[in-house]
Simulated assay, not measured.
Amino acid sequence: MASRTGAPEGTMFKANGLEWDVIDTGMPSPDAPTLVLLPGTLGTAGIFRAQIDGLRDIARVIALTYPIERNLGRLVDSLITLLDELGIDTFHILGSSFGGFAAQWLADRASDRIETLFIGNSLVDPVPSRKRLPPLDTMEAMNGEQHKELILKSVAGWDESEPVFADLKKKLMESAETVGGEGLKARVMALQNSQAVPPLAVAPERIVIIESVDDPLIGPEARRAVEERYPGAEIRRFRVGGHYPYVTRPDEYNAIIRERLLAAP
């Protein structure tokens, strides 16, 4: 665990030639755990505002915005170097959607450093998701703005059963502009060009699967695949939460994380 003071919000760090935007709250106490947050395709570090504000009293919270990199292996290698440079040894990591997939690959390369692996609204194999997307060669040929248009068209079709879901859509539209077309394309292709996550050397009791029954992107088949990959893992399920329950149900979501952070030795 690191004892550094936090980096100011929006601080850029370069690791292995890639630039990460880092929000780092610093250590609230010398023996506090560290929580690393990885967003999804449309997210930036700031999308975890509710977790940053709600958990910084018990943990050093580090939320990240990805560099533009289309190779997931290089992205994960850079992330490991970044964590080293931030003085982080062991840590809890929560990844949502694309971030959950990346977090699993990080666990493949640094399993001994992970105290809890939170897999949020994510998947273990990108191949089935390709059925609802254009062919890979078509996506490769699309420019960034076309990728952004495709993603935002999908978001626009999501249900708005409560005002919070309409607010979420607005946040995602703003986030898409911040990430930019090329950044979105890089994330999409990093996922879709990847293989399925290999078996991990992470004990089931150190894995928490968070999912939503009404997730518009991660359907029953994908959720079942995650659950079957990690038998014995803790499963926390939102009946209504959508693809971003940490935004739409922040108090309940934070409670899941807090419980684990406080239980850690």
Rank of each mutant, 00 (worst) to 15 (best):
S3Y: 07
A7I: 06
A7Q: 15
G10Y: 05
W20T: 02
M27E: 05
A32P: 01
L37N: 07
L38P: 00
G46C: 08
F48Q: 00
D53H: 08
A59T: 00
A59M: 04
Y66M: 08
G73N: 15
D77N: 13
L79W: 07
I80T: 09
T81G: 01
E85G: 08
F91I: 11
G95T: 12
S97I: 07
F98I: 13
G99C: 11
A102T: 15
A102W: 13
A102Q: 09
W105E: 04
L106E: 00
L106S: 00
R109C: 09
D125P: 07
D125K: 04
D125T: 11
R130P: 01
R130K: 15
K131E: 15
D137S: 14
T138M: 11
T138D: 15
G144I: 07
E149V: 09
K153E: 15
G157K: 02
G157H: 02
E162K: 15
V164S: 12
V164L: 04
A166L: 11
K171D: 15
S175N: 12
E177T: 13
T178Y: 05
G181V: 10
G183Q: 02
K185M: 03
A186Q: 02
N193H: 12
A196W: 00
P199D: 12
L200W: 02
A201N: 15
A203M: 08
P204D: 12
L217A: 15
L217M: 13
I218P: 11
P220C: 06
E227D: 14
V240P: 08
D251H: 06
Y253T: 06
Y253D: 00
N254A: 06
A255T: 11
R258D: 08
E259R: 13
L261Q: 02
A263I: 01
P265T: 09
